[in-house]
Design a protein around this nucleic acid. Sequence first.
DNA 1: TTGACTTATATGTCTAGACATATAATCGTG
DNA 2: CACGATTATATGTCTAGACATATAAGTCAA
Lengths: 247, 247
Amino acid sequence: MSLASERVKPGASGKPTLYKRIRLDIETRILTGEWPPGHRIPFEHQLMARYRCSRMTVNKALSELAQADLIERRRRAGSFVRRPQHLSAVLKIADMRAEITALGRSYGYQLIDCRRRTATAADRARLGVSTAGKVIAIACRHSADNVPFAVEDRLIDLSTVPEAATADFAREPPGSWLLHHVPWTEAEHTISAVVADDRTAKALGIAVGAPCLVIDRYTWRSARTVTAVRLHYPGETHRLVARFKGG
Amino acid sequence: MSLASERVKPGASGKPTLYKRIRLDIETRILTGEWPPGHRIPFEHQLMARYRCSRMTVNKALSELAQADLIERRRRAGSFVRRPQHLSAVLKIADMRAEITALGRSYGYQLIDCRRRTATAADRARLGVSTAGKVIAIACRHSADNVPFAVEDRLIDLSTVPEAATADFAREPPGSWLLHHVPWTEAEHTISAVVADDRTAKALGIAVGAPCLVIDRYTWRSARTVTAVRLHYPGETHRLVARFKGG
DNA sequence: TTGACTTATATGTCTAGACATATAATCGTG
DNA sequence: CACGATTATATGTCTAGACATATAAGTCAA
């Protein structure tokens, strides 16, 4: 048996691949606190020696850890364990139709109100713009198996998305239309809880005072506001669920 | 000028690097709908030809897109645009103390109740285990600047984390202790909205019937349940915010 | 037609180099 | 001592190969 055979070979003995093992090793040390925030991770060339592999392999492991925000990489200085992030939510932008049909339920859509107007002061504040261009204000409802699923209250900035003026939002939900016509570069989500007011309760078919989950989403395309949307979900029945892996 | 100079060089003209450009190109086509869900992305060797680069470069771009769940890669078959994910939330596991101090507020912690017992049927159901081992049940409160921030109701499976029996949860919040002593491999979050019941209202110092944001978190370590925790936040004042980039 | 075997192929991982680039550390100078 | 120039170094990206592996597709026999 040659000396080289001591090296961990890919796929050897059913184990995960080498770069995954390196990643998991480091991740474990971080999550157990053995390497606390601020700790400098061994340099790539040190990890090369420790795992007897090439730099690209340790680089792949470290890059993925950096992508996951577990470590921070600084040229010339090295890689450092980051402070744990705040409790933060990341909600993927998705189409309500896709969301509902993926649950195996039939999708329904009703346009409640759609009007085009010059942005009011309130509109400008909500969109975070200072100039008074045209906007479209939309109120609509999404339902699953003919039961109200969410009500949507949306503002679209026509100066960013002029094509939206020609879209038929009676036929197509604005979320779907935007997702298919406007690439977004940045988004912000805020999740909160409220109790249903009269109008929301009526639209969702729930009691006034019942809990609602509220999601506010702002979307930008290269520093220009695209749209601001507020979604009300009935809190008793709707849940946001996410499962994810740490390895 | 040589033929090779036609190739996009790293750092040329202040542009992003090549693999990032490839990633952005593909991402844009997906997000605009030009490549709909199910569409097969050009094979790596085709992208090599199109961008005149090595396979490792396109592989890095595609790997990152796969990590972001935008595409799915299947051996021998190719890479495919994934259906948009459901509206799903990813909440990073973080320490409540870190979360509050990061907001520039002082952290406070009060243990309300802590008892060790053999798992009841309800405990087993909540933890998703079938055997009746020992558990620790904890109720506590986190506050920011002496104002209640969240109440926590937690169950720890002692058969997975026997060391927890010796921890002093009157001194250290169980979330912090676990984060520093137990590496997790998987987690699941559920966000919902409820109205405060009597006990919750009293602990949070809000009115009965006021909206609350509820986060349920389950944590596993390699197929064994570690802990189940339910957090109640006052919905009027607390918000989960996340900002993220699409490029 | 169906099931078992074979083959072709796209992705998954890895190597041993290379040059680019940001920046911490050092050195010199006013 | 303060500040600007230089240097060393760790990361960032890339190449042109290699072999491993899962699997779609084709082949052949029962």
